[in-house]
Each structure stands twice: as structure tokens, then as C-alpha cells.
Design a binder for these strands. Structure first.
Lengths: 346, 346
DNA sequence: TTGTACGCGTTATCAC
DNA sequence: GTGATAACGCGTACAA
């Protein structure tokens, strides 16, 4: 009892042909109940497991889906992958994970690897440094569904699932304005990624819609870590007109600003209101819990999987690229809840 | 230019046979430089990609490795998976991810799924409710390497990579004793998992080794969330002899205890010292940063992958099961750094 | 109801 | 150096 058992092994044991075994195992109607039962039982006793590779080779369908992310161990992407896995597993798909480490080189490499592995689809979030798009054409030329999530590129025929980053930026800024903040700084990221640009635009429009003017000096481009947030605070403090609120495109940056502001002796949220983006797990755990825009990554993953499934189920039919935009949800916590305003609300 | 290109397509175009194309592509020595170059070029121009499924079927080697975890989106497991992926990718393996949701049922199911997918190995952390072990035998019967990480079961012939949980519990407790704590409570988890039992044993031995006695009333079994930590504090506060320190097997529980203790008006770390376990990302981000035992999940993943690679490279040779035990590292932060002791150290 | 024969794409083993 | 052929494990028309 060991090694790989094939339908030939069980056929030989029963003095029948492999075709019959195959039929019995697949509940083919054209087979007697007797042999079906017999085959089923001996298959189980011999410890037979179907070789999906052979099936995949024959059918041209591997039931493998590739997922490409910058890093797997950031809570945002991990949640998305969980959503994808949980939506695809019940449909019989297995998920292969690849990381790009934010480089174009690895992105191209992993795409080719997944193509070699004959995946039935690729779900991915493009890396920051991704500029060229010919590797996406490789995928499309092979008629393999490609779905972007969160970070997308404009490629014809490719569906995407994102959140409405404009809306997220708008809501966060609007909330700060409602808290009575007048001079709201915005810490943005690398604009080669659409998401940061759109969050900024939401921020800008919210200002204008509420009679505030947009001022260049309150816009900073920073990296996504706490150190960058601390440095940003120091930069802002050199201004003649210091801001009274900060909307950051990253929770880590937001945390850095809070740390630095508190070090400088400011009282939050009364002197400064801060809102972050992503609703990282830690934001709700802090003593001064941090307001943030939730991106519903689990839902995003499920939706990306659903879009893929729609694609495969609509072969032959007109398959139109889908651009799903999820609505972000601002979660208001202590870092932006001025006591004065809270009192008013009561 | 589209659809799947096979070596037959390129053979036909060049009026040669598929075997020759295969040889050219695989740098077989018995081939002329002229045809090799010709094949290489036309292969590239036609957009040929090797079908690894066919290769896998023929060779019996899929270059797929299955990874099974309770949940993919906890920082600990996500880091492990990252470590695994980064160690396996350069060796030509792709990683398939499955989640058990902590149920035995899904664990058995995912194992069978991965076996069907013809994975070359399975790396897994068993689920809490996993009791039966026959599904592990299925794996071993097929001569497929199985490696446990973090959470293991005693199964003959199975390698494992864990951290020395006894050591972790011991060091954490010893540290608390050195801070001057005399009555150290321990919040443990479900003892059906070895890890929690061992952490407790480390705790107990550290007490005894330093002349403190172990007292039942300071040992509580709790779930792994902040609510459980809060509840545990309330339970401990009902004791006549209240503890002066808490060693928790979970960072989330530790956070809960800190929140509740502060609510009750205690000053930390002077009234209470708290140490957690896992070094979750948030522990270092809190205003009162939390001391914790780091499990080096990234390293653990890399090591699990390495153990697997050792297995496959030693086919035929005596392959002995490896029991790798990584050394945990206590990270001392504010939650257990008494100012008095700190002053003394200066 | 069951057996026969073929093909999925690839490489390896023969021949030539 | 290259061509022909078998084999990996499976499902399925076609024949019986």
C-alpha cells in the first residue's frame, strides 16, 4: 500500500478496462450499479486519488489560478488573498501565490512562470515600479483572463476591482472639515500608482467643495512608513501657517505623524486631527485609535475572484471587461474626534 | 498570434520533428548550433511557452508545493508563507495555499485536494481541532515529503520546524522575575496544541529555578483575543493575592490585559509587568510598547522550505526526519521595563 | 454495459 | 544530428 495508484492498477485488479473504471468514478450513467459499487470500493481501499495533472493536460483546464502581489505578508494583501482563496476553493480552483517585491523584473518573471504552469487565470496587483505592459499582452494573447485588484494599469480588455480612492480621499477630508479643521495637509504617495493620485484628487475636491482652497505647501509626497510620517511633521512645522489636520494616504505614515506630534507636545485630536488610509489592524488597537479609510480587502479579494469566475463562465459569449469599484468606508476613531464637536453632536 | 503554441507548431513551421525542437529547447548536446539557434528564435517569435503540466505528467514531478495554514491573513502565518515562497521560488517551485479555518474537516479536505494536484510536498501547520492523523498517512503512503511548521503532531517520519516554546516561556518569565515580579500569572491557550503546553512548562520551570513556587490560581486558559485578556484581568483581580505580572501566550490577550489594567487605574509597568508572545506588528507600535517573544516566522518559513528541499534532494539515501527547533528571541519593551530596574542598570 | 483507441504536450529511447 | 515512437494518466468518441 503505497506509491501512486492509477485507474490502470484498479482495472487490472478487477479484470476490467481502465475506461470502465473511469466511467464508474465519474458517475457516468452508462454503467451497471454493480461494477460502479465494486470500483468505488476497491478504489477507496487501494487509496486511489485522481491525477488532476493528467486531467488538466487533457482538458486544457488546470484549475489553477495565479495570484501576484508585491508582498504576501502585508495585512492588506494577505486579506485579499484570503478572500480570493475562499471564493475560488469552493469552485474547485487552487491558488498559486507569487510575490513581485515591487519590481517590474519579478513581475514579468512571475507572469511567465504562471503561464508555464498553465493557470486558468491571473489575478494581480501591479508593482509600484511596473512601467512596461507587454507582459500583460502575453497573458491576453493566450486568452487567459486577467484581473487587476487595487492597483491597476490601463490595459484594454482587462477587468479590475478597486476601491473608489477618490471617494475615500473625499470622505476623509470632508470629515476633517466637519471637525472644524481649516488647514488640512495631505501626505500622498508615489503618483505612478493611480490610487495615490485619486486619493489626492478626492482630498482636493473636498476642500474646494467646502470653500477651502487647495494649497501646494500642504501637499507632501512621502514613503509609506512611520519614519516618513515623523519627517513630514517636521517639514510641516517649518511653515508659517501650520496645518491643523493631516490626511495621510498610509496608516503607517499617519502613525508616524501622531507619534511626532505628541512628542512635540501637541494634544491630539484637539490640536491636530489625523486620518489614515487602509484601516490597518493596529489603527484600532492604539490608545489613541486612528481614524482610517477601510478598503474591505477581504471583499475585494472575493470580488476579484467573482469577476474571474464570470469570465470563465462566459466563454463564447460577449465578455466585456468589468471595472468594479468598491465603496470605501471611513472609520472614525479618536485621532479625529474633537471633543468639542463630539459634545455638539450629543 | 494567439492561443497555445506547442513544440509541434514550431516543428511544423521549420519542417523538422517535435523531438528536435525539444532537444534544441533543452540544450541537448546532440544538436547542431544552426538548428538550435533557429528553433530558439522561432520559438521566441511565436510566443512559445513550455507546458509544465505535460512535463509534470511525464516526469511525475509537478514542481508544486502545498502549504496549509489555519488562516492566511494572520501576520504570523503570512510571514511564514512569505519565507516559504522566497526559499522555494528560486528552486523552481510554485506554492499553493490552502486554509483550514482551524477545522479538522477542512484539513483532511485540503490534504486530499493537494494530493490530487500532485504536489511534490506538503508544508503545514495543523489546525487546533485536528485530532485524527490518518490523513497524514495518506501523504506518507504516497512518499510525499510532509513538513510541519510551528504546530506539529507526533507522526513518525514527519519532519518539523518549530520554535523552542519552552525556551520562549522560560525567558519571558525569567525576565519578569528579574524585573522584581514575584507573583506572575500565566494566560495560556488550548493545550491540545503543544506550543501552549510548552510555553507553560517554560514558565513553570523558570519560576521553580528562581525560588518561586508555581500556583494553580495564577494559571488561566483563555482564547486568543483582547476580550479574553480583559476578562482574565477581572478574574485575577478577584484573587486575595493579586499578581504583579502577566505572561501571556498571545499578544492579543496581552493587549487586552493592558487595556483593562489601565482602565482599572493601574500604572504600567510599575504596578504590573506584561509580556506577550509572537511579536505581532502592533506590539512595537503602541504608546506602551509590549514586550513579546519573537518567533521569527520568516526564518521559520525559510527553514521549513529548506527541510523539504533536503528531503527531495536525498531520495534513495537515508532520509531521516528532521526536528528543527528555532530559538525564540525575547524583545523587551516598555510594558515590562520597570523604571526602577532601568535606573539600576544605568 | 463494456472494451478499444486516441490525444492532451512533453521528453527519453531507440534507430538511422 | 535528426526522426520516429512510446509513455506519463486520464476521459471519451466509437465500436461491440
Amino acid at each position: 500500500m503505497s506509491e501512486k495508484i492509477t485507474i490502470y492498477d484498479i482495472a487490472k485488479k478487477l479484470n476490467i478496462t481502465a475506461a470502465t473504471v473511469s466511467r464508474a468514478l465519474n458517475n457516468n450513467p452508462r454503467i451497471s450499479d454493480a461494477t460502479r459499487k465494486l470500483v468505488m470500493e476497491t478504489a477507496a481501499s487501494m487509496g486511489y486519488t485522481q491525477n488532476k495533472l493528467a486531467l488538466a493536460l487533457k482538458s486544457g483546464k488546470s484549475n489553477l489560478v495565479g495570484v501576484i502581489v508585491p508582498y504576501i505578508d502585508t495585512s492588506f494583501f494577505a486579506s485579499i488573498i484570503r478572500g480570493i482563496e475562499e471564493a475560488l476553493y469552493p469552485e474547485g480552483y487552487n491558488v498559486i501565490i507569487c510575490q513581485t517585491h515591487e519590481t517590474q523584473e519579478r513581475e514579468v518573471e512571475t507572469v511567465n512562470t504562471l503561464l508555464n504552469a498553465q493557470v486558468d487565470g491571473i489575478l494581480m496587483s501591479v508593482s509600484k515600479s511596473s512601467k512596461d505592459t507587454t507582459h500583460f499582452d502575453h497573458i491576453l494573447n493566450k486568452k487567459i483572463p486577467l484581473v487587476f485588484f487595487d492597483r491597476r494599469k490601463n490595459v484594454k480588455g482587462v477587468s479590475s476591482v478597486t476601491i473608489d480612492d477618490f471617494e475615500g480621499g473625499y470622505e476623509a477630508t470632508k470629515h476633517l472639515i466637519e471637525q472644524g479643521c481649516k488647514k488640512i495637509a495631505h501626505l500622498s504617495g508615489d503618483w505612478s500608482l493611480e490610487i495615490y493620485k485619486k486619493r489626492f484628487e478626492g482630498y482636493k475636491h473636498a476642500l474646494l467643495d467646502h470653500g477651502l482652497e487647495f494649497d501646494d505647501k500642504y501637499l507632501l509626497h512621502v514613503k509609506s512608513d512611520t519614519a516618513a510620517g515623523r519627517a513630514a511633521v517636521d517639514t510641516l512645522m517649518k511653515l508659517d501657517e501650520k496645518p491643523d489636520a493631516i490626511f495621510s494616504s498610509s496608516d503607517f505614515v499617519a502613525l508616524g505623524t501622531i507619534q511626532r506630534l505628541q512628542e512635540l507636545g501637541f494634544s491630539l485630536p484637539d490640536d491636530f486631527c489625523v486620518v489614515g488610509f487602509s484601516n490597518e489592524p493596529f489603527t484600532q488597537l492604539m490608545e489613541l485609535s486612528i481614524s482610517s479609510v477601510d478598503q474591505a480587502p477581504h471583499e475585494m479579494g472575493k470580488m476579484a475572484a467573482k469577476v474571474f469566475l464570470d469570465h470563465v463562465s462566459s466563454v463564447g459569449k460577449v465578455k466585456i471587461e468589468q471595472k468594479v469599484e468598491l465603496t470605501p468606508h471611513l472609520i472614525i476613531r479618536k485621532s479625529s474626534s474633537k471633543s468639542a464637536v463630539s459634545e455638539l453632536a450629543k
